[in-house]
Design a protein around this nucleic acid. Structure first.
Lengths: 208, 208
DNA sequence: GAGGAATTTTTCCGATACGAAAATTAATTG
DNA sequence: CAATTAATTTTCGTATCGGAAAAATTCCTC
């Protein structure tokens, strides 16, 4: 940081910059964490050094334009994303790219799902990529219910859909489903191997 | 975690940054000139040196976060203002083509898409399967705009996304996109072969 | 076109960002 | 809890940024 003793009575560039820089760092860390990445992983994607990102996230360093751009590209967002006010609702004109493998991950006993675009809040739709593990018949969870509507597309493998009050339905690769998600529902891989699915839900009010 | 695949070339931070930096510089100069200020006047307001601003405007230097923040304050704009492409008005004559009504299959010169679940009315989401034909570069249609939000997933092949005010984005199999569909947009197969995509839009008001 | 003032660009050197590797802390496993 | 591994932070040398002033350019006014 530059010295704070300046004779001239003009605005000091360093004044008040520290808190802003810390906020930028927090935003950067938030974007990284939302994707479940370590410093090393972001370093790999952006081409920067781990130490540089570490210092930037904690506001200990003032990144140059070039490094900020590298980070934006590594993360897959526009530069403006770093500076949009927190609480980032779905802003008019939003445009986000999710390269394969960029998501927030959740894992249950027989289901791994990864939310796409975790950084966008208040989306009208919530797209998720999921892997249904090959299962024991014992392993079923309870029906899931939530207000709204749901779309399912089978990307790989085959899926059995159990829906409350319906006979089980078998969906093969390329098949899809659209239904009221307040009806209890449950997915399972139909084969002995894992299945890959895409699920899109309507946003749940007040939900996570 | 095992070491990441080093076969993939690690991004070079300095590569391709120059043009972006030049664009930033132009934007900076544009903001200054729009106010009728000289370098010295902006230097006075921001607390930076004239030489620094001069070099930054011409893309000869990569400003640090702190100096960028000082400039934003001196000019009286938000940081994001530096990165939001503003003037980007183009495609005169293009207008929003909303998928109104219930259809099953539509075919244009280089795009075939099928609406899934046409029998369900008033869906919150409208999922569509599409095939982007390999194209001539001449074959592009106009931008499409419609109120709401849109989700795109590349199932097979690769897709180039043209969005108004954005640089073209290349999406490969498994990549996805989420954006405000009132921003003009257009998809094209990126390769010499057809591409398969899934598109989910929010329902359009007044439709069906 | 010549002089002169205003503005921009270049030069030079001290201050700071940046990356590689060491040191520390956190997480995981037996 | 010790041992091991993963993840983050700190250290330190080098490359680059950034400011003051000189040099060059552009813009007047006559």
């Amino acid at each position: 940081m530059p010295p704070r003793n300046r004779a001239l009575a003009r605005p000091d560039p360093t004044e008040m910059a520290d808190s802003q820089r810390a906020e930028f760092g927090s935003r950067l860390k938030e974007l990284r964490r939302a994707r479940g990445w370590t410093l090393a992983q972001l370093a790999e994607r952006s081409g920067l050094a781990v130490s540089t990102i570490s210092k930037a996230e904690r506001g200990l360093m003032s990144l140059t334009y070039d490094r900020m751009l590298s980070l934006a590209r590594g993360i897959g967002v526009d530069m403006a994303e770093f500076f949009t006010a927190e609480g980032a609702v779905f802003a008019p004109g939003s445009f986000a790219v999710a390269p394969k493998g960029v998501f927030q991950k959740q894992e249950t006993r027989n289901y791994v799902y990864e939310m796409l675009f975790p950084e966008i809040r208040n989306k009208a739709m919530v797209p998720m990529m999921g892997t249904l593990k090959a299962h024991d018949l014992m392993d079923f969870d309870d029906f899931v219910r939530h207000p709204g509507q749901e779309f399912l597309l089978v990307l790989e493998g085959a899926v059995t859909v159990f829906a409350e009050g319906k006979a089980p339905v078998l969906l093969r690769q390329g098949d899809s489903l659209y239904f009221d998600s307040s009806r209890g529902h449950l997915y399972a891989s139909a084969g002995a191997v894992d299945a890959r699915i895409l699920v899109v839900c309507t946003e749940v009010e007040g939900g996570a």
